[in-house]
Design a binder for these strands. Sequence first.
DNA 1: TTAGCAGTTAGCGCAATGCCTAAATACCAT
DNA 2: ATGGTATTTAGGCATTGCGCTAACTGCTAA
Lengths: 107, 107
Amino acid sequence: MQRVFEALASSVRRQILALLSHAELSAGDIASRFKISKPSISQHLSILEAAGLVASERRGQFVFYRLVRENLVNTLDGYVQQVCPVRRPLRKESATRAAKATPLSEG
Amino acid sequence: MQRVFEALASSVRRQILALLSHAELSAGDIASRFKISKPSISQHLSILEAAGLVASERRGQFVFYRLVRENLVNTLDGYVQQVCPVRRPLRKESATRAAKATPLSEG
DNA sequence: TTAGCAGTTAGCGCAATGCCTAAATACCAT
DNA sequence: ATGGTATTTAGGCATTGCGCTAACTGCTAA
């Protein structure tokens, strides 16, 4: 969780995740979309991977990165629930509980 | 948004928000729950306030801080939607869309 | 005004971050 | 093996972040 929030603290890294939300991309493809150097992007990718927000797979010369939505959503949702007690989560399991829509101090 | 994610990158600040999710607290009350010094907590609070995640109000000698849930939830939700296209948001307005539960690449 | 508590601001030291270039590694093709 | 492309690792440097103590401001109470 600490790693996830640290990873998300960087604008570049958030943009990378946004890119990967559309499609799997190679490290080079990702780097080409930013002004900063390839090694810097590689470093960002390794931070994202350490946080479990992306996964990588080498195919031939290329290393493809894909978004791991589950971890992103679970982590953010988990924290939001901690801070907005028993509010509607944004994950599937509890579409039922969502119906109750518990108003708390802001209702 | 940048400010919000930067604010959330610190464990202490996330804990402060969690504290404030239960009740409004004075700066001193908050500080007393951590090992770090009062000035440091004050600095954390000002970062949270700059990010719009908390609001402060002086009452007599005390400065009370309260959580601004809206901004926290809106920001996290907004980014999640950017990354998990047209996924179920975790805010109220669209309890309707939540029923549809759009499966995407992880369905 | 003086004393005292609550909180913030100022300034310092240290560790971590983020960028870079250069060099190394991994793979493909010849 | 050799050369070329893709990516990561290593090392350096400037900036930022986070903790501290000391000093300052705001309020209450005599």
